[in-house]
Design a protein around this nucleic acid. Structure first.
Lengths: 117, 117
DNA sequence: CGTCAACATAGATGCATGTCAAAACAAGAG
DNA sequence: CTCTTGTTTTGACATGCATCTATGTTGACG
């Protein structure tokens, strides 16, 4: 079981959350606090485990300039939510599931606080 | 019990997330995108299910002015994450677990959410 | 009634952020 | 090498946001 460790992510209902960890988590949540980035992330995640998405598929889905999309992708990457690789002309992005899991565990509400088994 | 509604939260890896839902979720994530608000929420949530926390216990835990704390609590409340009630001189806050659950479900990573295949 | 304490609201200020146009960069084709 | 396409970086601007001080509101207590 995971939640036994003292320093590990026990979910917010267990520990009152110190400054350092709060700042760390806030940075990731802030990256999710934009509808464009949420849609980008979901489009990439919709590819499933190990799936990749080309920027050229993401950009036309928005009414924004392509540099703006690139900027949002950069923020998601800096938050540790996604990563990318260039192959030839195109750049492919994929989701880093570990980051999402950490957030989900933190959000475990008192009601659902029972372990994920 | 959860998956009944058609409008309910299938997690981001299932649906590419339309604009409306993205904006809605982004508002909540944005509320979590601040270390002070994260700490406030965790302090309230640490009271457990049905637990309440008085503002007079929250304010002195920060190096911020009282109006600033009040402002952050307002944002958390507007995001639907907490609610409050005044009893006598003091105001008590508590967590709304449903909001947290919706976020946690949305964050279900492809790894964990893969019921699809 | 008046006064005090606990919270909330209003207004102001400085910093962060979303956006675009323009330029830079990378890689393949001719 | 030059040209073209895909992507990122840069510079600039407008908006948003976290924070403060000052003021308002609510309720308890004489």
């Amino acid at each position: 079981m995971i939640g036994r460790g003292t320093d590990c992510c026990p979910g917010m209902s267990a520990a009152p959350l110190d400054d350092e960890r709060a700042a760390e988590l806030a940075k990731v949540f802030k990256a999710l606090g934009d509808p464009v980035r949420l849609r980008l992330l979901s489009m990439i995640a919709a590819r499933g485990e190990g799936g990749e998405t080309c920027v050229c598929e993401l950009t036309p889905a928005f009414d924004l300039s392509q540099p703006t999309i690139s900027h949002h992708l950069k923020l998601l990457r800096q938050a540790g939510l996604i990563d990318c690789e260039r192959r030839g002309t195109w750049v492919y992005y994929w989701v880093l599931p570990a980051a999402l899991d950490r957030l989900a565990v933190f959000l475990k509400a008192p009601t659902t606080a029972e372990a994920l088994a």
